Computed example of a mutant assay.
Amino acid sequence: MTEIIGVRFKNAGKTYYFSPKGEKITSADKVIVETARGVECGDVVISNRQVEDDKIIAPLKPVIRIATEKDLAQLEANRQKEREAFKICQEKITKHKLEMNLVDVEYTFDGNKILFYFTADGRIDFRELVKDLAGVFRTRIELRQIGVRDESKMLGGLGVCGRPFCCNTFLGDFQPVSIKMAKEQSLSLNPTKISGTCGRLMCCLKYEQDAYESLLKITPKNGALVQTDEGAGTVVDVNLLTGVLKVSLHSRPDAAPKVCKRNEVKIIKDSSIRVDKAELKELSNLEKE
């Protein structure tokens, strides 16, 4: 077992493990640590805890110190510099007539590097822009092209549900989301209904999928042949969450479907959920990162 603390550098970013070096650190603290990008200040989200050795990548980097008042002042000064750098970079992009959209600017804690995040439809030759920015800021410059999902995560906003974006509030990493998930959750394959503000499939399809998969194992699907107390029939409608089925009885094909619960029928031959190839091709852009 190894003692760790968990540190996060963005509101809904990934949590990284560091060694507390025997010091008691709480989740209310900020700490100064060394990362691959340089010295950074992060929020402690997991206080001192023992974890199994196979859950960490050894050796763990130690915490340099708990953030002091001076460190917090430096952090605030960096935030102000980022706002100024954003304006300057925006002006330079316009000057060089580059078709790119600046999303965010980030200073490393020690000021040794400035990262500019942008989106663009294709590859951008920004070599002259980097030279221009380096001449202004006199430090290392990195321009990083990001996808539309990363853009939404950085900027935040409200989803179609009326709540703040999941990616901006609690989802640390993006998970693959597929059209098949939407189909299995009985959603309309209308792009405006299943995509988020970023134009990609809604992240919530993924973390709700486990519940739907469990229900699909015990619920007959559309087209399934089932036995009811009034005879055999074919399932013509399914509500997975409530477990209510509509069954067209073979003995009364012209009558209204019989309404029953999933535990009131016996599956003779189940059906399967398939996504039409034409639909899949049409909606494939929604699955892109």
Rank of each mutant, 00 (worst) to 15 (best):
F137R: 02
L98M: 10
N78M: 01
D125H: 14
E230Q: 15
G157I: 04
I66C: 01
V31Q: 01
K277E: 14
K183L: 09
E151K: 15
I273D: 04
G38V: 09
I46A: 00
D150P: 11
A255W: 02
E151I: 10
T15M: 12
C198H: 13
E3R: 10
E287L: 08
S19F: 06
K14T: 08
V33I: 00
P176G: 06
S188I: 11
A211S: 14
L225C: 01
S47Y: 08
K92L: 12
P164Y: 08
Q74S: 14
Q90M: 10
K70Y: 12
Q80S: 09
L245G: 00
N112M: 12
V51A: 08
C89R: 07
A85C: 04
V236L: 07
V136Q: 02
A232R: 11
A120C: 11
K288Y: 13
K258D: 04
D237H: 15
R123Y: 13
A278V: 11
T119P: 13
H96W: 10
T139G: 06
V247R: 04
E287Q: 12
E208Q: 06
E106T: 06
T119C: 12
A120H: 12
K266V: 14
L280T: 06
N112S: 15
V236T: 11
E91A: 15
K81A: 13
T234C: 04
R65I: 01
I141R: 03
A211V: 14
L98S: 05
C161T: 02
S188C: 02
R65G: 05
R123N: 12
L249W: 02
I146W: 10
R252W: 01
C166G: 09
C41Y: 04
K10S: 14
C260T: 02
Y207K: 04
P20K: 11
L189K: 03
V51Q: 03
G22S: 11
L60Y: 09
L225R: 00
V7Y: 08
P220D: 08
N101E: 15
K24W: 13
V51S: 03
Q175G: 08
